[in-house]
């Protein structure tokens, strides 16, 4: 029988199981929440050391990034992320993993062309968009004045 694309797509959608959101969403909720609470815990410690609020915030990011990179190196991050999904991806740990994973993976192609070039293959767009958005926002502030 002749096949048209619409019919075929419908057939394919019928055969494809949906993502198991009933399992994924609670997993992401708990892991993501736990990582944020852990960050808050670190922040409490840093504030207790007499750091000012902004510096403590940066220190929290650095600590979580360190943990993300370490777990990536120990091959534990991927295992956790398979279960946690967005729970490990969306916190800053996901950013750390997206830099560390290609750095580690492309070691076999050398340090310059492997590690250093590929390091930004996933995180590159995040940095580019983030920096560009902040520059645009800065320009708007400069042109239209003191909104914040």
């Amino acid at each position: 029988m002749k096949l048209d694309r619409k019919e075929y797509l419908a057939l394919s959608q019928k055969a494809s199981p949906p993502s198991p959101s009933l399992k994924n969403v609670p997993a992401a909720f708990f892991t993501g929440g736990a990582i944020c609470a852990l960050g808050q815990f670190f922040k409490g410690i840093f504030l207790g050391w007499g750091m000012e609020d902004k510096a403590a915030g940066t220190a929290v990011s650095v600590t979580l990034i360190f943990l993300g990179v370490l777990l990536t190196g120990l091959r534990l991050f991927e295992r956790a992320a398979k279960w946690a999904g967005a729970g490990t991806l969306v916190p800053i740990t996901g950013f750390a993993n997206s830099v560390a994973a290609p750095a580690l993976e492309f070691k076999t192609e050398g340090f310059v062309l492997g590690v250093c070039v590929k390091m930004f293959s996933i995180a590159g767009p995040v940095l580019t968009f983030g920096i560009s958005a902040s520059v645009l926002y800065g320009l708007l502030l400069y042109l239209f004045g003191g909104a914040a």
């Binding site: 199981p17 398979k82 996901g94 993993n97 994973a101 290609p102 580690l104 993976e105 996933i122």
Partner: peptide, 10 residues
């Protein structure tokens, strides 16, 4: 990369 923590769809 193998250590990248992405989820695969079913």
């Amino acid at each position: 990369p193998l250590e990248y923590g992405g989820q695969r769809p079913p």
